[in-house]
Simulated assay, not measured.
Amino acid sequence: MNQFDLFRRLTGAENDPRSTDEIWQETASQPDFVDSRDCGLVDAVQSGWYLSESDELFKGFAISATDSVLDVGCGAGGATLFSANRGAHVVFTDVVAEKIESLKARVAQTPARKAEGFVSDSIPLPVAAASMSRVISMEVLEHVEDPAAFLRELVRVGQPGALYLLAVPDPVGENIQKNFAPGYYFQRPNHIHIFEREEFGRLVTDAGLEIVRRDSFGFFWTFWMFLYWSVAKQAGGEMEGTSHDVVQPPYPPILNDWAKLWHQVIKMPEAAPMKRALDQLLPKSQVIIARKSENG
């Protein structure tokens, strides 16, 4: 079963002669519709991501035109594009060739002073030692066979004093999902590691980096995934493929309702303390900003 089958089953559209895309476009064109991705972006900005005015990809992690930025496991390329739009030299890698080709075309439309995209599993990285001033790896470490070796390779390519932005799923939400998410979510090529918070920090310091700050965020997406697995189970059938690629629009109706509700909540300034508390209680991700020694 794929996301199109899931959407048609949960909307009662299995016998609708229209294409799934046509049905989804009708849903998305409703005046009160809120796309989960748009809500997620608003939520992320409120959590300190994509701060255009200060050129911070995440609070405390600024990007300038003088930086050379490596985005490992770039996926759709949000971090790469943010950096490219600041005029930085960007290098991006992923194991999926189609993602690299798509991102190359998008980066070509930005003021990046140089752009390089590579299909790579990251061990080794096709990047010279001590050449990057910013290194980004978000939601990748949980997929790799040897996290310590992966981090050592990230450290190899960083310049003395380079900043690192590292994120992995938070263990609280991951362990809750083990009670109802399908088994494949915790098997290759999906999440084969759950990092407890102390363990994540120790991996970073054992690789030779100094932790500058820690944070967590993403209650919206954690609860979104709880709902997703529940409705997928209701529909029956096993999903196929890498979870990040499977969990794409069209989304089931209850997820659209959740996005609409959360979007209304976070538009209220009075809700900010509640959002911060929930982001700490049940975050999607734990984040570390770290620094490589000036001595290399």
Rank of each mutant, 00 (worst) to 15 (best):
A149W: 08
L6D: 02
F118T: 04
T27M: 15
H143S: 08
E98S: 15
W24Q: 01
G12D: 05
A149S: 09
T222I: 00
W224L: 10
S102E: 11
A130E: 15
E153L: 04
V246T: 14
R8T: 08
W224K: 03
S137T: 13
Q177N: 06
I289R: 02
E270V: 12
H263W: 09
A97L: 05
N295C: 01
N175I: 05
A28N: 05
A28D: 05
K59H: 06
L10K: 13
G183T: 07
L255H: 08
Y184E: 09
A235C: 01
F217D: 14
A76G: 15
S230K: 06
A44V: 06
E240K: 11
I288G: 08
V168T: 13
L282T: 07
M274T: 15
D67E: 02
Q109D: 12
L255I: 09
D245T: 13
P252V: 00
A235V: 02
D67A: 02
I192D: 06
Q46L: 15
V69R: 03
L209C: 02
Y184S: 07
F150G: 00
F220Y: 15
F226M: 04
F7P: 09
M1R: 03
E26C: 03
I211M: 00
T80C: 11
F226P: 00
E53C: 01
I289Y: 01
S122W: 05
R152P: 02
G236S: 00
Y184W: 12
T66C: 03
L151T: 08
N256C: 12
F223W: 13
S131R: 10
